[in-house]
């Protein structure tokens, strides 16, 4: 290949490169605006997606907080406060009755009960517990009206304090 041919070839290559650059520039100028708007839209979508992702994470965390629930165990502890002049033998019987009343709460979510303690209070409100006379004669037949005093959770263990007041029987003439 002689020198003039080589120069000719080089010129063609350079002209091709110039053409390439010119074409690229022309395409860039023609479609640049569209590309820009697409990039803008993409960034906007990234941002919105990120926002949604953060929101989902927050909601998941919130949901997990409510879902990592512990459930109320069988061993519901009941403390009964009786009037001082009342026989303390009624305590056990009242305790058993109250534990029966609280059975629907066993296995329920601790969070649910602690968030809505009024449900428990409503169940207890103005409830009359009838205590029959036992065979030993240690307790005579009486009725007690109970009222919820305190309610607490020790882990999954529900512990409640109840005030029991004797309800006077209506005498029939």
């Amino acid at each position: 290949m002689n020198r003039s041919t080589r120069v000719q070839l080089l010129r063609i290559v350079v002209a091709f490169l110039f053409g390439l650059i010119g074409g690229l520039t022309a395409m860039n100028l023609l479609y640049g605006q569209k590309l820009d708007s697409l990039y803008l839209e993409r960034n906007n979508l990234y941002y919105r997606n990120n926002e949604k992702y953060k929101k989902i994470q927050m909601l998941e965390k919130d949901l997990n907080k409510h879902h990592d629930t512990q459930y109320i165990g069988q061993d519901v502890s009941v403390e009964v406060e009786l009037p001082t002049n009342e026989s303390q033998f009624y305590q056990d019987k009242i305790r058993k009755e109250i534990q029966e009343i609280l059975q629907p709460f066993v296995g329920k979510s601790v969070h649910w009960v602690s968030d809505n303690p009024e449900v428990l209070d409503t169940m207890m409100a103005k409830r009359i517990i009838q205590i029959d006379q036992d065979q030993k004669g240690t307790a005579t037949s009486k009725s007690f009206q109970i009222r919820l005093k305190y309610l607490t959770f020790v882990g999954t263990k529900l512990k409640i304090w109840v005030v029991a007041q004797e309800k006077q029987k209506e005498t029939e003439e």
Partner: peptide
Amino acid sequence: TLLGGIGAFFGNEPPMDTM
């Protein structure tokens, strides 16, 4: 600017804004 725009196009950047 024009060649930089081509570079931006290949570099996944908005060409007009870069220009």
